[in-house]
Amino acid sequence: METGDFRQLTIDGEVCRVAAGTPLKDACLLAGKEIPTLCWHERLTPASTCRACVVELEGSRTLVSACSRLVEEGMVVHTDSPRVLHARRGIAELLLSVVEDAQVPELQELVQSTGADVAHFRFGATLAQPTRDDNDLYIRDYSQCILCYRCVEACGEDAQNTFAIHVAGRGFGAHIDTGFDRSLVDSDCVFCGNCVQVCPTGALMDKTEWTLRQTGEWDESCIQVSETTCSYCGVGCALDLHVLNQRIVKVTSPYSHPVTQGMLCVKGRYGYEYVQRPDTSSVHSSAP
């Protein structure tokens, strides 16, 4: 029965009671069933485009996406039925037919859990294209893009409200665009890097990280993280400085931080070079 603000539903045979407004994905987690996701991100509105999180809902003609569908009274949900596993396997195989060597942990997990054949649909068009390196702060390698819409959402209403990028084209030609394919410098981009922050595949990557990876110098295991507060303005954004060989190579902010919720501006994210410039007395004495 529908009681108060709670909904009762059955997940893989187990009866659960969760708060109204809970996405199925979270209800499943409470029931001990982890649902795989690719496009979903804790800070963004579910776009529900990857379809990796589909589950079977009794009475529904098609599978439903657990990231966006909210719990309803009396739902009967199956998270690992043959139909669900078949769809997830198909999705993994389709993505791997387009994006070569995707080093996305979530995608690798999806391949593992569904027994996907990575070469199944590899007979046609791919997204292979040169990396776009048109500014000093981040690169765009759209051959790695799974069109999760995260960057579009972070640039838009979910964080930055700049709306510098959107999806253009249709079908297989759908792609992230700056508007008439302009360079980022000529676009409305304000270089906050919040799109880079949420990109799951490395299609968007800070220029520093990308350059170090090109030369083989990027070593995740040697990176130390120092917590600090951004010194530029009075907002007080928390910064995590990623330090490799005594140099800051990347700046992020924790999603749990109440001020930033993981998002930064161009100064907080990219304005760190002054920290590691040679210390000359002239710099200090010239301060007002």
Partner: peptide
């Protein structure tokens, strides 16, 4: 269908083009 898919979701965006390729090849 490959031409008219909007490209939003994976099964349709990539699926329609793979179906087309399979039928052509």
């Amino acid at each position: 269908f490959a031409e008219e898919s909007c490209g939003q979701c994976v099964p349709c965006r990539i699926g329609t083009v793979r179906i087309k390729e399979m039928l052509e090849q």
